[in-house]
């Protein structure tokens, strides 16, 4: 495979806008934003130029930490940010298009914010009861 090199670097949440600006100045394209729920929340911002792909990792301890939206720099990021808000309950400030939690309407609020149950064969017949998210 001659796949482009992938680099991972961790940055502090406060430096997010600065880093995004630098990526934009370098001519990168926003590829995706991915959130993972481990014991903490981990966000990966991926930027790509023709032959490289860079991932910026941001770790936040819980979903109450609000992150700045990068939609003023990358106009298309609102889709990812709204998605992460609805599935993980993380708040983004200053989104250019804000769905107020109605991007994905799910039976339970922030369903993906539950930490994974590793290695358990997971026989889980009890489905969570639908609750309405207070908006």
């Amino acid at each position: 495979m001659n796949a482009p090199a992938q680099t991972y670097s961790e940055i502090a949440p406060e430096r997010l806008l600065e880093a995004a600006n630098a990526q934009r100045a370098a001519g990168s394209r926003l590829v995706q934003i991915c959130c993972s729920r481990l014991q903490h929340f981990e966000l990966l911002y991926s930027f790509s130029r023709p032959h490289t792909i860079e991932h910026l990792r941001i770790c936040i301890p819980d979903s109450r930490v609000a992150l700045p939206s990068i939609s003023s720099i990358y106009g298309g990021s609102f889709a990812y940010e709204n998605e992460i808000h609805d599935l993980y309950g993380i708040t983004f400030t200053g989104m250019n298009v804000d769905y107020q939690g109605h991007f994905f309407r799910t039976a339970i609020p922030a369903p993906m914010a539950v930490p994974p149950v590793c290695a358990a064969p997971a026989p889980k017949p009890n489905k969570p009861q639908p609750q309405k998210e207070p908006t």
């Binding site: 799910t106 039976a107 369903p111 489905k127 969570p128």
Partner: peptide, 11 residues
């Protein structure tokens, strides 16, 4: 519900 029966959003 098929293969997605266990998903959290399935009725």
């Amino acid at each position: 519900g098929g293969i997605f029966r266990d998903c959290y959003n399935t009725k």
